[in-house]
Design a binder for these strands. Structure first.
Ligand code: SF4
Ligand code: SF4
Lengths: 151, 151
DNA sequence: CTATAGTGGATGTAATATATCCACTTTGTC
DNA sequence: GACAAAGTGGATATATTACATCCACTATAG
């Protein structure tokens, strides 16, 4: 019930990339330094991001990585999916899985709705929104407070 | 990013309990048979549910377990919390954890909002609603379809 | 008193998350 | 062309967590 450290690394990496002018590259090593991410692990992570079409890479001297699409088109949901695969908060929401109880089980739809709400919320803001200064920090407190009741 | 098998077991167990008349008990063994849950594992699970105040237990002959509160007052969110502890989809949403980046990090609020939406959705229906026949099965298809785009 | 049913601790196994090592390929620069 | 910089890819290691089993114990109805 938690995103992995690798996903966090991926998010922070893409955030760094979103901050530099479009078309410029950053070296993986530099990002790993700035973000305190083990460089060898970050390399693997970047490969997943590249595979998912979120970053493009350039080898050799002066190489590095950059966003493969506009920051306006990338959301945290995309990043989670790139690293962890399709989101499925329970077995029966995984593509292809069929539970013997499905059809009679009243739980599955509830979980599906909750997951939908979760993803929808993640898709409301793009990387571009996130790196833009002066966003709605107030909501942090609101939601953390609410989390206390809820979580 | 997925509830554990144990949580599933807990949900199915409470669903069974919600189906019997109020005040009646069911044996753990019986539930484990009906739901194909390893009995020794289910015992541990039930203890967590008891600790969380969701079920009450009776030992000895004619013993068993029953809901400790009205089915109307128990939601899937409660069950997840009982088994897995407070929901925190990322480290920084765990009670007590402070990230060095917190305060400047734009990601945390987004995750908090998504988590809030997730929990809120789970709290919209109680066990009583779920065992009641003729609920909104249609939403299953809607949300699974949507999941395809989103997930 | 005895069978039944929950309690609780110890232990085992498998899967996953996290990380490191290193040999290789591509590419810009001198 | 040689060299260094930087991403690629596979193998391996370690820690943590999820999942499960075993068994000795306690409470209770009849
Ligand atoms: S029992 Fe229901 S919730 Fe559990 S896996 Fe099957 S369909 Fe999904
Ligand atoms: S960097 Fe941001 S999202 Fe990651 S743990 Fe810290 S506050 Fe949370």
């Amino acid at each position: 019930m938690q995103i992995t450290r690798q996903t966090e690394y991926a998010i922070r990496t893409l955030l760094e990339l979103a901050k530099v002018p479009k078309g410029e590259v950053l070296q993986v090593k530099l990002i790993s330094d700035r973000q305190s991410i083990p460089v060898e692990f970050l390399k693997k992570t970047v490969q997943l991001l590249a595979l998912a079409g979120l970053v493009s890479t350039r080898r050799g001297t002066q190489g590095g990585i950059m966003l493969a699409r506009p920051a306006e088109d990338i959301t945290i949901a995309d990043i989670i999916k790139a690293i962890e695969g399709p989101v499925a908060i329970n077995l029966c929401l995984e593509p292809g899985y069929v539970c013997p109880n499905q059809g009679t089980c009243p739980v599955s739809p509830v979980l599906a709705r909750a997951q939908g709400a979760f993803l929808r919320e993640l898709q409301r803001e793009s990387l571009a929104d996130l790196v833009k200064p002066g966003s709605d920090k107030a909501s942090l407190l609101v939601d953390k407070g609410e989390e206390k009741q809820l979580g």
